[in-house]
Design a protein around this nucleic acid. Structure first.
Lengths: 341, 341
DNA sequence: CTGTTAGCGCCTTCAC
DNA sequence: GTGAAGGCGCTAACAG
């Protein structure tokens, strides 16, 4: 049994509340040096560690923040989480990270779990199949910020990226190289960033006078296999794309697999330009030209937005969306299309 | 303000304890159907969610498990975490993941935080610079299992890998291809697995009649830059290694960078064999021959060991070490040394 | 300067 | 079948 405030008090020959006061370090309430010393001694002797559960119950405040992300193994999300973790610690909070595995039920449970354990705020990258639990949080004015993904019809704080614009720029870049048939490959198509990327892709084609065809858009799930099948079928078209805009790191690996299996070269036969830069990108079989998320900035902004809400009581006015700019990392996976295309 | 048991009770016109009984679903204590229905209705109307903080305080049990890992962005650790997360959920636990960034102080704080928040058990991959906090947990018989890393002089449950043996096998393989000068590159050298790999490396050299030289061992930290410098300096030796055994994924990237910058080819000029397989390995500029950790098995065993301790009260006999076998993933980064070496 | 009191939300034992 | 009482460990308000 770990020792309690009472144990320490008994040992130091004082009342528990005195121990509490000393340990909370209330400078305005004066306490005799002798008493303090006896208490500190008792704390050390008993190896006393305050019970944060009890503290949280009493204070209705836990000094903890919950983070809910779809995939802890994704360099993108874990990068954001690590930035936030550092900021949390500096500000005296603990960060509890929950993984949802892109599963809506797990996310709902995670949010419930975290709130019912009394976290002071929540940062969520939602799965976006349902939104009731998010709406509930908003209704209760619970400090919340969404990252990467967000619901356009729910007023929450959020940090999102300029996905439409970036996709637009990527397609333009490809078109400038001479590509006329540009495919789009993605995982789960319902996610906000993916929706936006597709929007940007379509708008660019239209602005550039390139035809849009549904057959060049291939949708799947978050797995490598799914992306492999997507790319494979696009490459089996008689008039196949000469370039791909790809949404997601794992999706990119799946597409690469399909391209190489078809005996095609990157970028000589097919160009690929891929959302989500990782530290692996420069070391891949072909160093991939990617669109890079400013991970630290996302984390910083998310934490700042959350802090604001936690302080202000998160009224209506506290809800802000920050849009963050991504950058193109030029590497070796794009080039003009083959001459005979 | 979220609603409480008392609110629900008031609304249903019963006593709080009755609500508690109904919600805990104690089948042995009979409660009239009518009362139950009123209570369930009130729960729904008030959107009642039990306060897990209060529950944990009362029950001295939180149905939560803490996991403390050095780097959430590492595919290896996050893979283990995800397996454990799934098992936890199935068994009715929440998993709270804390990232230490290989920082000993953060780890100590994380362990303290988690325990003082009442988690029922802890799975830790320690930084291994200090061990007092681990010893404390053991002394208090707190359910604990170490993964990947462990302290040979502390009796804890642990899941570790056959690192020495695997390193031995890797060196043997390289020697069989004809390599006489085999370098060893690693990050933090104090970590249990690294110590063991170095042991296996040395033993293999000795058994195979190959000379061991300190100059062929290059130690650093967990960064890509450090590994780059390590490999670079080894490759600048007049009698440079023709093969490397590399400990760690990021270390491998750093080494690759140095090798390519030197204008050397893998495997024609230098072979590399690398600890820690990832999903990226097959897609790298040269598909890397790696040693693969059975991530799911590690997670499964860790959770099983923890469950055992949580049930049995984690007495002396509950402490077990499981040793898990890694496998060599043959790809294209090893070959006989160049003829003129 | 320090002790007393009350209660955060919940669950369990004991009544009836 | 259900209510009442007590307390998990802690802190804040009020005494003195």
């Amino acid at each position: 049994m770990p020792s309690t405030l009472k144990d320490v008090a008994a040992r130091a020959g004082v009342h528990p509340s005195t121990v509490s006061r000393v340990l909370r370090g209330k400078e305005n309430i004066p306490i005799s040096k002798a008493t303090k010393d006896r208490i500190y001694a008792a704390v050390r002797e008993l190896n006393y560690h305050p019970d944060k559960t009890a503290r949280a119950l009493r204070l209705r405040r836990s000094d903890a923040i919950g983070m809910v992300i779809p995939n802890i193994a994704s360099p993108y999300f874990s990068g954001i989480a690590r930035t936030i973790d550092t900021l949390c610690n500096a500000a005296g909070f603990s960060l509890m990270i929950f993984d949802t595995n892109e599963n809506q039920e797990k996310e709902i449970r995670a949010v419930d779990d975290l709130t019912s354990r009394g976290v002071d705020g929540l940062i969520v990258a939602p799965v976006q199949e349902e939104d009731k639990h998010i709406r509930d949080l908003v209704r209760e004015n619970f400090p919340l910020v969404l990252v990467d993904r967000h619901f356009e019809d729910i007023a929450t704080s959020a940090v999102i990226c300029n996905d439409a614009e970036s996709a637009y720029g990527a397609v333009k870049r490809l078109a400038e190289l001479g590509h006329q048939r540009i495919g789009f490959v993605c995982g789960q198509p319902n996610l906000y960033p993916v929706v936006k990327r597709l929007e940007g892709y379509k708008k660019a084609l239209s602005d550039l006078g390139l035809p849009f065809s549904e057959t060049f858009v291939s949708v799947g799930d978050a797995t490598l296999e799914s992306a492999y099948r997507s790319a494979h079928s696009l490459l089996s078209l008689s008039q196949k794309p000469t370039a791909f805009l790809i949404s997601g790191t794992i999706t990119t690996l799946g597409a690469m697999k399909a391209i190489f299996e078809k005996g095609l070269r990157i970028p000589a036969d097919v160009s690929i330009l891929s959302f989500t830069d990782t530290m692996y990108a420069p070391f891949l079989r072909v160093p991939i030209t990617t669109i890079h998320h400013p991970v630290e900035e996302i984390g910083r902004l998310a934490f700042a937005l959350l802090e604001e809400q936690m302080k202000s009581g998160s009224g209506e006015k506290g809800k802000k969306q920050e849009i963050v700019k991504m950058t193109l990392e030029q590497r070796d996976s794009i080039a003009p299309p083959p001459a005979d295309s």
